[in-house]
Simulated scan of single mutants.
Amino acid sequence: MAYANDVGGMHGFGDLPEEGHGFESVWEAQIFALNQACVAAGVYTLDEFRHVMERIPPREYYDMPYYERWLTAVERLLP
């Protein structure tokens, strides 16, 4: 089954946008660090994190900036 993020080799998405390296805001760095800490502490695995992120409905997935997808996945995984 293909998920919203599984677009490898598909046509029609246009050129890739130029993105800067690093974080655009503090909250992005914080969600990155929180995710790393949760994985390191065994709260959830990286595979669980990726699976939850991949299950975001396609319309929502494509409307979200990159780290908002991370935030959504972490919110769904934390007890």
Rank of each mutant, 00 (worst) to 15 (best):
I56N: 00
P57H: 02
P17C: 01
R50D: 12
D15I: 04
E60R: 10
S25L: 09
Y44N: 01
Q36G: 01
V39L: 01
E48C: 03
Y62Q: 07
H21N: 09
E48A: 12
R50N: 14
T45E: 08
M1W: 10
A33F: 06
H21L: 09
C38T: 00
V43S: 09
I56K: 00
G14E: 06
I56A: 00
V7N: 13
Q30F: 02
H11K: 14
R55Q: 14
E18M: 11
F23M: 05
F32H: 06
N35I: 09
M10F: 14
D47T: 11
A41M: 04
I31L: 02
E18P: 01
Y44Q: 01
I31C: 02
E54Q: 15
V43H: 07
L34Q: 10
G9C: 05
A2K: 14
F49K: 07
E28M: 12
A37E: 13
E28T: 01
D6V: 03
A2R: 15
A37C: 03
D47K: 14
L46D: 14
Y3P: 03
V39E: 05
Y44M: 00
A40I: 01
H11C: 08
G14R: 03
P17G: 02
G8S: 13
V52K: 10
H21E: 10
E28I: 02
G20C: 01
G9D: 08
A37I: 04
W27M: 01
M1C: 07
M53F: 00
Y62L: 09
M10Q: 15
G9A: 05
G9W: 06
Y62F: 13
G22A: 05
E18N: 12
